[in-house]
Write a protein that binds this DNA or RNA. Structure first.
Lengths: 195, 195
DNA sequence: TGTACATCAGTGAACGCGCGTTCACTGATGTAC
DNA sequence: TGTACATCAGTGAACGCGCGTTCACTGATGTAC
């Protein structure tokens, strides 16, 4: 990376470059945590993916826990953003199709962090759960715009929809391929034995 | 434990006692894995909980992975068993009420292994996922008995129901208490602002 | 604009720690006669 | 039924390894004058 310009020697980077490094660390963490789990991905793994060595990590974050918080926030914000743009009904329909697709199943690193990390976040600090809760709240608020009825009824329906999406992907990923395709088809509402 | 009878010295146990030890190890693992996660609970933690030291573990299991498989199978079988007994409709109704209760939320160690460990099982071996898939298949078959329509429609409806239950608990546990109670109430179908 | 110097982003070696796993050992169990 | 002995369940110390974190160091950046 940039240090190679100086022959691999340690060198002070500009503030602008530090900001880019910071963003790269979060982007790498966000993906790698979703792929390998919060405990399955080490600080060194993340830093290597971001093109650096692990030693510099603590110039950017106080601890691994702090990185987890930032990575969760970033991943959830990205997912909520997709839903908030454009026509509510269309946005939710597209979101749902993508959510229940084979592609989402096979690529947790760029998928929704809730099925990928939910079980582990339950055991994280209160701070991490608050961040996760806020992110899920944004997603549900966006889904609610596509539901019908009173504000409260729309929100409740959105929680039920989102719960089903999350559960279906958790189940599909934790099972063999046959069950995976069965639960996704059921969640999609495909006609049984479609022919 | 039993070794204290002999002053804490290592001693050969009878076959019957070994079988009891084996069952105790699985029972401890089944609970502790659900509480702390598959990576968050060590072999030593499990053996200590079962009243032994970690060294004897490999007389019972080939590896930690093998223990994970047995513990997942045991926990799922216990949950499926509850659903298979008695009147299908009544059994599912009771299961659902318990599943979406505050008690289930607060006690993952004796709760359903799918929300507790689903995200992590997705990253386990194919064998572990096959075991998990079979267990979930049993649960869904039992739920399907309480649904209406053709066999295929009942099974699809059961997958959707189970997905919503799993997702609601994953979301509730990974968030702050306020969102937790909101998603559980929505999944239960409580009337909004009930008064 | 030019100079002198404090700052600090990133490197790479090192730290203590807990992990999964192995092993020599103990002595009651279970078996062969 | 009694005796001699191989088996093996469980102990506790030890193994190599990867983890999160710390630290001395480097030299361009950014600032004070």
């Amino acid at each position: 990376m940039s240090s190679e310009i100086f022959g691999g020697r340690p060198v002070r980077m500009s503030q602008e470059e530090k900001d880019r490094s910071h963003a790269r660390i979060i982007a790498s963490a966000s993906r790698i945590f979703r792929e390998r789990g919060l405990e399955g991905a080490s600080v060194a793994d993340v830093m290597k993916d971001a093109g650096m060595t692990h030693g510099g990590f603590y110039k950017h974050f106080e601890s691994k826990d702090a990185l987890v918080g930032s990575a969760l926030e970033s991943a959830l914000a990205c997912f909520a953003g997709q839903l908030e743009a454009g026509d509510p009904s269309r946005a939710y329909s597209a979101y749902r199709d993508l959510y229940l697709s084979d592609g989402h199943l096979a690529n947790p690193g760029i998928g929704c962090p809730v099925p990928a990390l939910g079980s582990e976040v339950a055991r994280q600090t209160e701070d991490a759960r608050a961040v996760f809760g806020r992110g899920m709240g944004r997603i549900v608020a966006a889904i609610a715009r596509a539901m019908r009825g009173s504000a409260a009824a729309r929100r409740a329906a959105a929680w039920r929809e989102f719960s089903m999406l999350v559960g279906a992907v958790v189940i599909a990923r934790a099972a063999d391929p046959q069950i995976a395709s069965e639960v996704l088809a059921a969640a999609r509402g495909d006609k049984p034995h479609g022919h």
